[in-house]
Design a protein around this nucleic acid. Sequence first.
DNA 1: AAAAAAT
Length: 452
Amino acid sequence: MDKNGDVDVTNLADQIETLDTQEPKHNSLQESSHDVIIQAVGDDPILSIKTFEELKLHENLLKGIYEMGFTRPSKIQAKALPLLLKTPPENMIGQSQSGTGKTAAFVLTMLSRIDFNLQAPQALCLAPSRELARQIMVEVRKMGKYTPVITAEAIRESDVKSTTTGKTRSEEFANAQLIVGTPGTVYDLLKKRIINKTSMKIFVLDEADNMLDQQGLGDQSIRIKNMMPRDCQIVLFSATYSAQVRTFAGRFAPNANQFTLKVEELSVKTINQFYMDCKDENHKFEVLDDLYTLLTIGQSIIFVQKRDTADMIAKRMTDKGHRVINLHGGLSTTERDAVMDGFRRGDAKVLITTNVLARGIDVLQVNLVINYDLPLDSTGRHPDFETYLHRIGRTGRFGRTGVSINFVHDANSWEIVKAIENHFNREIVKVPTDNWDTIEGILKKEISKLNS
DNA sequence: AAAAAAT
């Protein structure tokens, strides 16, 4: 490695050696040379904790934390938690890749703000997709396992009537203390007064840049925030903030403490990035087909730009005899839940999807991400760097190693790959599409060694 | 232009 922490990508043999001995670093997250930068609004000295005990948490909350396998606070948790838990509460704008202990940090903060004797909504978290909201709730329930917390998911209802709970939405939200949901549903439930906002103490936006920036999502997030009580703590977390969103975030969460991790360098560090130079759009499919025919790959995600493409690729791959599943926003809620649950269980190895799953989703076994279509910004011609970073971040979770392959098929897509390479200052290595001995030489070792 | 998110 050089002084910037860059790996010499040309020496693959050496890398493979290091991969073999590399242990997944589940709880010693983020022990890299990159520092957490803190900007606190007050004059108090900035505390940094070394153990969770120092936070004076409820003992049953501590029990949940330890049972989840967290032994010590991660770097960002060490610095951010004392600020997040201050009395009176202060706003926070945090930047760090998910997989650095970000979710645990805000879930812990939400749980510790709740008065368990008061059966009314006190903590609200919004996420940009149904799948991410459900994933966060799983974390909440693990961490809060030994507390009496009452939780509710504010996402679109399943189109199949639930036979297990039989509760109406009003009943479900009447005594819920911690709510995780998506903006549309949450706004709807607040407006109908199914969610009572009067006791809300903390409002969290996960993937905050996306929640504020995106057409539609931004409006909803703002409307919801404006419904929160005046003294409600506002917490924004994301791995990325574009310059314009950062300015807006400062107005959305006024007088916020801030922490930043140099994420762009960091999250691409353990992910080996490649590109394959395809002849044209149709050749991309042939290469994809060959890739899955000739290589044994663990779990992988294939990103495309449009729902239609996801459907089409899924059908063509299935016709070719590959077992793939497909998830996008055009599916019913029941289908989405079933597909996601199946993928998490490992029933399916190959998931084809849109940007709906670009952010936040944690499936530890994913060691390959394919950008079948490169992520584009609103012009449709230029790269979307944030989405690229989030997409390839679906692999290489918690310090594991991952591989990403970008499909290039014309001059524009080649320029996009070069721009991405330039932006992150990381080499994206060319892999031939016609010489399978070479392809295997480059990819197979890396991917198959990660299957175990 | 597309994706997501509401009904």
